[in-house]
């Protein structure tokens, strides 16, 4: 079947299978920042935005993206890079495999929450797993990025 959608501000028409998931469709079309790691919707690596809200692209059927606006890290490169510089200054990307999905959720949080507390930050980002860093460096980076103590 065919779907029409907007990916990173460009209109596209893609042929997909009915049982295809958005993460796979995006990767097949070259959006290789989208990673998968769990198969059970609990790691957050595949996070992209659908109509501006963070979603897990591994568990959204691609047909559900018909008529929607999808954003990957490639589509918000400037804002993402601003945070990525802070993240890497902490060394808190480490293997980097979870970073794109994590960054997409951090940017979404910035859009959604004003001056979040530490608990709110941790709560918002808790679905983004990371096995390398132990989360503390990521928290430092997020706080620096948001300008909160």
């Amino acid at each position: 079947m065919q779907i029409e959608l907007i990916v990173n501000d460009k209109s596209v028409t893609w042929d997909i299978e009915k049982d295809e998931f958005l993460a796979d469709t995006l990767r097949a079309h070259g959006f290789l920042s989208v990673k998968k790691a769990c198969d059970t919707s609990c790691c957050g690596l595949c996070t992209v935005w659908m109509d501006g809200k963070p979603v897990l692209s591994c568990s959204i059927l691609s047909m559900r993206a018909h008529g929607k606006k999808i954003t990957t890290i490639e589509g918000v490169a400037q804002a993402a890079e601003e945070f990525a510089h802070i993240l890497t200054a902490e060394g808190a990307e480490q293997c980097g495999f979870c970073s794109p999905g994590f960054i997409m959720n951090v940017l979404a949080m910035k859009n959604e929450l004003d001056n979040p507390t530490e608990d709110e930050i941790i709560h918002y980002l808790t679905g983004n797993l990371c096995r390398c860093t132990g989360y503390m460096g990521q928290l430092r980076a997020v706080k620096t990025y948001l300008g909160v103590a």
């Binding site: 990957t72 490169a77 990525a84 993240l87 890497t88 990307e93 293997c95």
Partner: peptide, 21 residues
């Protein structure tokens, strides 16, 4: 010195760099 990793920005930004990519 706490120099950021030389590959850090690329992989954080999701550039194709891993086996599947």
């Amino acid at each position: 010195h706490s120099i950021p990793k030389i590959d850090g920005l690329s992989i954080a930004m999701g550039k194709p760099a891993y086996t599947e990519d």
